[in-house]
Design a protein around this nucleic acid. Structure first.
Length: 399
DNA sequence: AATCCACAGGAAGCCCGGGAAC
DNA sequence: GTTCCCGGGCTTCCTGTGGATT
């Protein structure tokens, strides 16, 4: 049930599988497939489908007139022009050596992951590739991350390389969950990258149910899931733009909770708890990665919240914040800035802040903590970057 | 009706780090 | 390497404001 698992069958993706297969089957007829651009929100099965189809393709590729090589690159990890080319060059050098044994001509043993001029790496890749009559299908997953980080130069080069190759051909499969990024591309790159386009619509609740059903059969004992459990998971995920990964996470966590409790079956209540746990883990992660000053502001709110004396208002928060700063010898920001930080925390849903007027006694913001104080506190103190945790007061001793 | 509190939040500008251009 | 530019974080200064109190 983990997100890393690639299932052997993909329910409700038949159409996409067919389309993709139709395009990628071109090499079996001795043709070069078009470049493909695949778009869909997270958890709609893009990566799984591509992996599935390319695997099938490799199985039948022996019958093809030219050799087919599929290279999968996740651009979130490999996100510069150099590293993409170096990765490709390394792979094709390796394959070339496998194929014909002798180290090719004047080509080097390997490409270092850093150091060479980019055009040398490019040439190296080019020659290793062109050395054989082959078709390289290069899958660039999360290609939007690549463009965001290093621009579209790599894509431009890769889409152009075909015209220079004598023996080999390449075709590119770009996967993205951000459609907007196409606008940042050079028009030439855009049109050649999206010779074919494939859209992965989100799953609806029914389809999610189906997917969960299939996976549940593999992961849970018969009768371990009470009625309604799967429907509830599906419903939750459908509300969050049909993310199958979400749905699976939910079911998995619900199972883990049930197991820890020693329950025999997974109940609807477990799913509810799992939902809360996942949501909470998300916010705790946000808190953990907050900048120091925001953490301090939040910590002030928590301290005030624990006192439970009166409603928390901006002025009080700022006072507490100031003492905290002094105690941990940090710079004290102005109230104006802290006011903005409070707004940011509000936007993130960690706190709720609304403007109230107390008549003669002014206009201010009333702040309500939106997370468990104890856990939030723990999240703040984990990896507290600049401040010695011990110096933070456990209790508020303020007038 | 006028006053006035305790801030909200807009505007302008400073400072600094990082990336692009030279 | 230097210069330039940009954006984000921050400050300073400011005007605005809902409604209890006078």
């Amino acid at each position: 049930m983990r997100p890393t698992y690639t299932p052997a069958e993909l329910p409700h993706r038949d159409e996409q599988i067919h389309q993709l297969a139709r395009i990628l089957a071109a090499p079996l007829r001795g043709e070069t497939p078009s470049n493909i651009f695949i778009y869909g929100k997270t958890g709609t099965g893009k990566t799984a489908t591509v992996k599935y189809v390319t695997k099938e393709l490799e199985k039948v590729a022996e019958r093809a007139p030219r050799r087919v090589e599929v290279v999968y690159i996740n651009c979130e990890l490999v996100n510069t022009q150099y590293r993409i080319l170096a990765t490709l060059a390394t792979i094709f050098l390796e394959k070339m050596r496998e194929k014909c044994g002798e180290p090719g001509l004047d080509l080097p043993e390997e490409v270092p992951m850093t150091g060479w001029p980019t055009d040398q790496v490019y040439k190296c890749f080019f020659r290793a590739l062109d050395h054989d009559r082959q078709l390289a299908i290069i899958v660039l997953d999360e290609v939007d991350k690549l463009v965001l980080k290093s621009g579209d130069e790599v894509l431009y080069n890769l889409t152009r390389v075909n015209s220079d190759l004598k023996n080999a051909k390449i075709s590119i499969v770009g996967i993205s969950n951000d459609l907007n990024f196409m606008n940042y591309l050079d028009p030439r790159v855009r049109s050649s990258l999206s010779e074919e386009e494939l859209v992965f619509p989100p799953y609806n609740a029914l389809q999610l149910r189906d997917i969960l059903d299939k996976r549940a059969v593999m992961s849970f004992a018969v009768g371990a899931l009470e009625g309604g459990v799967i429907s509830l998971c599906a419903a939750h995920a459908a509300r969050e733009h049909g993310d199958a990964r979400r749905a699976l996470d939910l079911l998995r966590v619900a199972g883990e909770i049930a197991e820890r409790e020693g329950a025999n079956t997974v109940s609807v209540e477990h799913v509810r708890q799992a939902y809360q746990k996942i949501e909470q883990d998300k916010t705790l992660e946000v808190i953990r990665t907050l900048p120091t000053q925001s953490k301090l502001v939040l910590y002030s709110v928590i301290l005030l919240d624990e006192r439970r004396e009166r409603k928390i208002i901006t002025g009080d928060v700022y006072n507490v914040y100031r003492t905290l700063c002094r105690q941990s010898s940090l710079d004290i920001l102005t109230q104006r800035r802290v006011s903005d930080l409070i707004n940011e925390l509000d936007m993130m849903g960690i706190i709720n802040a609304r403007i109230i007027s107390k008549g003669r006694y002014g206009r201010t913001k009333e702040i309500v903590l939106n997370v468990q104080p104890l856990q939030a506190r723990a999240a703040i103190q984990v990896e507290y970057p600049d401040v010695d945790v011990a110096t933070l007061p456990r209790q508020l001793t303020l007038a």
